[in-house]
């Protein structure tokens, strides 16, 4: 069985039905990646999906705290280094259907695994017995680790705040992910020279955006350009706006903060050439602080909080999409 990630990576799976991988990233720290991934994983589990939450924030793991479980003894690094198998490192949680793999790391070198080790890890997760959905909680920044995990997922979620710093980092992250994705296929398409020219300081091709680069490739070789474009059109990141305020409560420039997410997705499509879309808008909600301080998921502390309901909506939409994708496959 062949599975295709959003980033267009293809991995050959065993005969078993592959789990769907959802990655939650965001260029900036503190935007709510762990909050989203943890609570999304709980929501998936509540919906009967056998879910594996993986704290892939190698080096800055703390999903265990949000989830309210002790940090497991065996971690992702043991899995990467083949010291343990998945069933050793995936611990049960207080929630039915939800297991958890910690990324808590003592070992500095393991925080930077080789590409091949990461791909093996993801294959392992994707074909694990009794797992329907894998939720990856990614770290901040644009390290290759983070980008690779983001790209291999079936659904890549970018958490953004309605703040200039977060918007700026989100665009940086998307561009970095796009170029990382392209770099993975440069040999296959013989476009290394164009990428090199685009990366150089002089930038004689005038490449400033992913769209520019695709146009440059197409100009040089229309056939290859079309193929690369088709490959890259699968990179369809989902924007999830967090801490959104309604217009009346001081949203952005007199408009609902949801506008920011819509503007960003639209701008990505129109001016970057990246087909981003809006997955949802999560309202600013004091319940988050209560839940984090209590070290429990929202479902346990504030089951009726607006943000919890919004996350439930996101989970429902994702399941509908994953179901549809599966039916089509």
């Amino acid at each position: 069985m062949i599975c295709q990630g959003t980033g267009g990576y293809t991995c050959v799976m065993s005969e078993k039905r592959a789990a769907r991988i959802i990655a939650v990233g965001g260029g900036k720290g503190g935007v709510g990646k762990t909050l989203v991934s943890t609570n999304l994983a709980v929501a998936m589990a509540v919906r009967g999906q056998r879910t594996l939450l993986v704290d892939a924030d190698l080096g800055g793991a703390n999903a265990h705290t949000i989830l309210g479980v002790p940090p497991p003894l065996a971690t992702l690094s043991d899995l990467v280094e083949r010291k343990a198998n998945l069933d050793d490192v995936a611990v049960n949680t207080p929630f039915a259907n939800l297991r958890f793999v910690s990324g808590a790391l003592d070992n500095i070198s393991a925080a930077n695994p080789k590409h091949s080790a990461k791909m093996r890890l993801l294959r392992q997760l994707g074909r694990a017995d009794g797992v329907d959905v894998v939720v990856l909680d990614l770290g901040a920044g644009t390290s290759f680790n983070t980008l690779d995990f983001f790209l291999i997922a079936h659904t890549s979620i970018l958490v953004v705040l309605p703040e200039p710093t977060s918007v700026e980092n989100a665009y940086r992250f998307l561009k970095a992910a796009f170029f990382r994705r392209l770099a993975a296929v440069e040999k296959a398409y013989g476009i290394a020279d164009i990428l090199e020219a685009a990366r150089s300081q002089r930038n004689e091709l005038g490449v400033h955006t992913p769209a520019d680069l695709l146009a440059a490739i197409e100009k040089k070789n229309p056939d290859v350009g079309r193929q690369v474009r088709a490959q890259m059109s699968r990179f369809e990141p989902c924007l999830l706006l967090n801490q959104a305020l309604p217009a009346a409560a001081g949203g952005t420039q007199g408009e609902d903060d949801g506008t920011v997410a819509r503007d960003m997705a639209s701008a990505c499509r129109r001016f970057l050439g990246v087909p981003a879309r809006v997955l949802g808008v999560l309202p600013e909600d004091e319940a988050v602080r209560r839940a984090v301080r209590a070290r429990k998921p929202l479902a346990a502390i504030a089951p009726d909080a607006p943000i919890k309901r919004a996350l439930d909506g996101v989970a429902d939409r994702l399941l509908a999409e994953l179901g549809a994708a599966e039916a089509a496959a």
Binding site: P162, E163, P164, V167, E168, Y171, R172, G206, H208, T209, D212, T252, Q253, T259, V260, A261, R262, D263, M264, S266, A267, F271, L272
Partner: peptide
């Protein structure tokens, strides 16, 4: 407004040359 970064959703969307 978006491409010139005058609205929040367009902040640092593009570098100056783009």
């Amino acid at each position: 407004a978006l491409v010139e970064g005058r609205t929040l959703g367009g902040y640092f969307l593009l570098d100056p040359l783009a």
